[in-house]
Write a protein that binds this DNA or RNA. Structure first.
Lengths: 217, 217, 217, 217
DNA sequence: AATGAATGAGACTTCATTCAT
DNA sequence: CATGAATGAAGTCTCATTCAT
């Protein structure tokens, strides 16, 4: 299943690392993240279990890499879009964010599970490096928000950035029941009727939040 | 440690169930929730491991019961407070909510871990019953919010209630690093400087959210 | 295969612990000690792998228990024999020791491998407790030697005891080739001709050692 | 770190083989032998893991080579010393042996671990060749002993040689606790007080053994 | 009702060895 | 000859759950 037999140079190694992450991503989407074993990832990637440990020191490091891959891509897409044109108003901004997350179904889920991952078997230096990159991303996204929200948010970008992420995580948890609960909900019409749509709910909630932060914008 | 040797009638059985939950609560606060084993809970409760299964079908049901106990208590306290006097403004409401959560340190944590619990080994009927009670609580808290926010929130209580909870979960995750990450943060002044205080951060974020929802209130 | 389904009281538990040790002993004799896995021991004992960990914290603790069981038995037999009649001379003492070891084929082997076991995954308190018991056994055997060797060994029992054990371990290593080497030896007559017999070789070597220690005895 | 990039002729290949052995020796002394991986040896030697397998069929062959290197050197030093002057008495001989071992800290350790190595993954032909060389060395050392001990040991050199080695291995095991046990001992004064010094203990034990073998010498 | 011994699937990780490059 | 990525079997240990007592 792997394209190349042996990843010899840096480029091939990076591709192989990505292969592993892709395999993990496929499995996460298909079933449930917490049920994911290194064994299963290796099988899905068409590699031996030991090979995974050549690319990731521990399982947790792999998950972290998965999250960061998505976040970097997402952040880049936000920055690219803002460079072209800033959202016209809060609702547009909120919808843009929500739409971007829909394209990366795993990112929100991984972010929500982050605490569990961080508590696992993670070398301290990996945890620290992750945190430092998280700070950088928070600031970068904060800068985007400041530009979009105008003078009112000046200097508050990082905080707002965190509030936005808090809302994303929270709405995700409420609007995206995991498979098992999904099944339960589907057995009861009155519960099904109260189902929320993640994208629109998040857009609405973020709009309200932004409205509250920067009333006139 | 258990007061009675054998729980014969319904009252005694309920008390014993509560004993187990109290033991779990003590342990959760002391250390980390995900590292909690049935063995440890049984020991803390002064009971045998097997006995726990007389009161809870699975570990997950136990955690769910723990969460619900806290939520019911919290909801009752909210309702009691609102019956006496409604919060004077958004900030007062936000601070009241944040303060109530501080008094129940486990509730927020359990709520944040809910997806993991729900994906675990949980009988379908238990999951369903939990969900139905969650709906009831959501509506009850929603009604409180409608009363506090006035005409603007009319009919939106349940949704707002969920947004508020989303914000609680999200801010919790960002402001309460788990022990390991806490240690890592403490090793770096520049990270320590960015530490957030859960209570005040939540109050600010909720205030903004409420301001956005009901601008004039 | 296990006699009783569940070991409920202390006696049954001790018997079960012994069952596990017996299973390990059977496997050690049959094949090679270092090839012994907890998995194999559990299978041989007719128990689940996890059950072994109810009786021994780690694999190393199990091996230590195996060794101690043999040593206690051996020491008791030495003391019993000496209580009845002291060996008449050095050669008689040496032969008695060698004969006692032949009856416990595992003891010498385990003793020889002790360093490897002690370097494994052994809780510090278990290691300490083992060492303290080893000291007691050394002194007890030393007392036996002092009685047998007469005035010359007075106060030197413990040291002599250790020299005797050193000789036992060393001769064992030279005279008892492990299966693989045994096969190799058998393929060459000139090597086979130099084969040593553990029992007689040890008896001779110990006799010499005792002669050197206590010339007139 | 390796002097030459590619070992082309026999001389260079032998030097490279020695480089590997030297690297292994450095690591053995620094830490614990059983924890030594081919990876670590390769790194220390400045070579790739695969390269090691060009010089040694298996890990065990490498360890065997290490032991033999030390033994050949030691034997040569014994023969050289005896050619100059024979030890004046048993104690002098014993002290000479003990001192020679102190200079080769690895030799004793490797000899003690020999059974484990021999039981590992060792090609039969390698095992056989090792054994044949061991016989030669045993005889050579035996001849030295016969010369030193005089007529009494005539024809017994090889046996005595093995007894001496048995004593060396045994005293080594008793007097040189591995790091973990060393730590445990250091936590208890009563255990620390019973610590043995390898060199002097071996000298005493060997003196006694020689006295027993050849009383008048 | 209570116990706690027993289960056993499953997790992560290591490392000697191989072999494509 | 040299490399080092890949292998994969093997290992130890955990823990939610069951069930004989």
């Amino acid at each position: 299943m792997p394209q190349i037999r042996r990843a010899m140079n840096a480029g091939q190694k990076e591709r192989r690392r990505d292969d592993v992450l892709d395999a993990a991503r496929r499995l996460c989407i298909g079933s449930d993240m917490s049920a994911l074993s290194m064994d299963a990832i290796a099988r899905e990637a068409g590699l031996a279990k030991g090979t995974l440990y050549l690319y990731f020191q521990t399982k947790e490091e792999l998950f972290l890499a998965l999250l960061e891959q998505d976040m970097e891509g997402w952040l880049a897409s936000v920055e690219a879009a803002f460079a072209e044109a800033l959202p016209s108003d809060h609702r547009a901004l909120a919808k843009f964010i929500a739409a971007g997350l829909i394209e990366r179904p795993l990112m929100t889920q991984l972010f929500a599970r982050l605490p569990a991952v961080l508590e696992g078997n993670l070398p301290d230096d990996v945890a620290l490096a992750f945190r430092l990159r998280t700070v950088r991303r928070t600031d970068a996204f904060g800068a985007c928000l400041e530009r979009a929200l105008g003078p009112i948010a000046q200097g508050q970008g990082a905080r707002l950035s965190q509030w936005v992420f808090a809302m994303i995580v929270g709405v995700h948890q409420i609007a995206n029941p995991r498979p098992r609960m999904q099944r339960v909900l589907e057995s009861r019409p009155e519960l099904l009727a109260r189902r929320l749509d993640f994208e629109s709910e998040l857009a609405d909630a973020l709009t309200a939040l932004l409205d509250g932060i920067a009333p006139t914008a």
